[in-house]
């Protein structure tokens, strides 16, 4: 996207208060994730082993038992946990992982679901039957439960968690892409494109993949939030990155036994999840209105 269209898009999103809130949250979320992610993974390569902590108020891993269970204040915005770790730093530290997972899972879902759904819709008949039966089969399991078991079987790690989520995430996209393909197939311009001598792959790419992606874009934006929500439940159940790595969901479950006396531990990381998911939903609605307006 050229710079000027990006600017026009942002200006448009700022006009409506709801999509403006969503846009701001998304910019903060992904902006921070990119900055912190670069520092964390590029820093050590350049010889700054602690670059990941540079922008954080405190080291998210260092114990300070004299400062344990401090309630939120200016020095500890989100308070501290039982080991005296600053929760705000831990929340900030966990964000790049969430951002990466949401983008990878939605992207993976679009690729797998796109192939399954578009071939089903484009070829129809037997291909359609087989593809859709498989899709229905995956939809019969509650996504999170299946993801949980898959990750449990193949091994607990951040990589396996992401793979498990993609395995349960694509069926919805397969359905969306299929109905888009069916809609497009019934339009006259496809016949004329084939008659005009374009190859089959060119027709599929130009007339199916691109318009279908356009329609699915706004759903995918909202879906970023759904992935974060689902991943937070996985990590709440202990299926995320193993401790001491901080994660939003596991911070809530760790804080459970200190609730309600030390409420901030469980609640504030949870509120951050809500903010991100609401932001994605509002942003997605804005994207839909923007695409509809074009």
């Amino acid at each position: 996207m050229a710079l000027s269209t990006t600017w026009a898009f942002l200006k448009r999103m700022m006009r409506n208060p709801y999509s403006a809130i969503g846009t701001v949250i998304m910019i903060l979320f992904f902006g921070w994730a990119i900055i912190e992610g670069i520092l964390r993974y590029l820093g050590p390569a350049l010889g700054f082993s602690n670059a990941g902590y540079l922008l954080l108020p405190y080291n998210p891993f260092s114990f300070n038992l004299s400062q344990s269970l401090v309630s939120p204040s200016l020095s500890h915005l989100f308070g501290t946990d039982s080991l005296g770790r600053d929760l705000f730093s831990r929340v900030l530290y966990s964000i790049p992982i969430d951002a990466a997972i949401s983008v990878i899972v939605v992207g993976g879902g679009i690729v797998v679901g796109g192939v399954v759904g578009l071939t089903a819709g484009y070829y129809g008949k037997g291909v359609d039957q087989v593809n859709m039966r498989v899709t229905d089969l995956f939809l019969a399991f509650p996504a999170l439960v299946l993801a949980m078991v898959i990750e449990y079987t193949i091994g607990r790690s951040i990589l396996y968690a992401t793979i498990s989520l993609i395995v349960v995430w694509w069926p919805v996209y397969a359905r969306l892409f299929r109905s888009e393909a069916l809609r497009i197939k019934n339009m006259r311009f496809v016949d004329s494109a084939i008659l005009s001598g374009l190859s089959r792959m060119q027709v599929i790419r130009r007339h199916f993949v691109r318009p279908a992606l356009n329609t699915i874009m706004s759903y995918a934006t909202v879906d970023l939030g759904n992935v974060i929500l689902t991943y937070s439940i996985l990590s709440f159940l202990g299926l995320g990155i193993p401790p001491p790595e901080p994660e939003l969901g596991s911070m809530v479950s760790d804080g459970l036994s200190y609730f309600p006396q030390n409420w901030w531990w469980a609640i504030l990381p949870g509120v951050v999840i809500v903010l991100i998911v609401v932001g994605a939903a509002l942003f997605g609605d804005g994207v839909r209105d923007y695409l509809a307006g074009e």
Binding site: G225, L256, I273, V274
Partner: peptide, 22 residues
């Protein structure tokens, strides 16, 4: 519905636990 949809179930549970119980 936007808020209830976007809130992880454990947080909803904590909220009602705090409100009606504690």
């Amino acid at each position: 519905y936007l808020l209830t949809w976007s809130t992880p179930p454990f947080l909803v549970a904590l909220f009602f636990q705090y409100l009606f119980s504690y």
